[in-house]
Amino acid sequence: MTIAETIRQLYQTGGPVIAVLLLMSVVGLAIILAKSMQFAINRIHRFKEARAAVDLFLSGDREAARAMVSRTRAPAARLTALAIHGLTAAPLDDRRLREELTRVGNDELRALRGGLRPLELIASLAPLLGLLGTVLGMIEAFQAMEREGSGVSPAVLSGGIWQALTTTAVGLGVAIPAVASLSWLESRVERLGQEMDSLVTRLFTQAPASRSTKGR
């Protein structure tokens, strides 16, 4: 059986509810692929250069630290480069610099979280839509039993229940991958946020106290 035939059979079984669930599955898959590509292009998993730059800066080799973070455009490296520049050249005091770094870091994380809300909505609504389809199917099955009267065939009842439960199965089939993917994507963004916070904290707490305090 081809994919088109399977989809046609599912639609005939579950009706509009199945159509909505299939549309949600397509949208969810598109979001997952788009976010995975975005994360890969932005290299949000790359922390090596940023960590090395912090180590170099704390050891006193500021030029090498700048060169290290200039080799990649990963979010952690960009924030580290901004922090190093602020600690060496920018006329901002520590409090204002940390506020600026927090703003930039939050903007980075907000951009990476963009598009995850629809995926969360799909993960939440898919099981409910499946349950709705089941309830509607069960209503139709009992209506068929009422029309048949006392001579209702068990095949009529079992067939109606089977059709009704199909929507629940499809709803769960859409929701489970969505939930798993959402958890994985959010964990990567959370890991990036924790890493950026750790890098900035190291720079402020362990850096030599020789930087200018202009602006205080």
Rank of each mutant, 00 (worst) to 15 (best):
V20M: 05
V20Y: 03
V20T: 12
L22F: 12
L23R: 02
M24W: 02
M24R: 00
M24Q: 02
M24G: 12
M24D: 00
S25M: 12
S25P: 06
V26H: 03
V26P: 04
V26R: 07
V27S: 01
V27R: 02
G28S: 06
L29M: 15
A30R: 06
A30Q: 04
I31Q: 01
I32N: 04
A34R: 13
A34D: 15
A34V: 05
K35I: 00
K35A: 02
K35F: 01
K35W: 06
K35L: 01
Q38M: 05
Q38S: 04
F39D: 03
A40V: 04
A40N: 01
N42Y: 05
R43S: 06
I44P: 01
F47A: 10
F47V: 09
A50T: 10
R51S: 14
R51F: 09
A52T: 14
V54S: 02
V54F: 08
D55H: 12
D55C: 06
D55G: 10
D55M: 11
D55L: 09
L56N: 03
L56P: 00
L58N: 04
S59Y: 05
S59M: 10
S59P: 04
G60K: 10
G60S: 11
R62V: 13
E63M: 09
E63Q: 15
A64S: 11
A64Y: 03
A65C: 08
R66K: 13
R66E: 12
R66N: 07
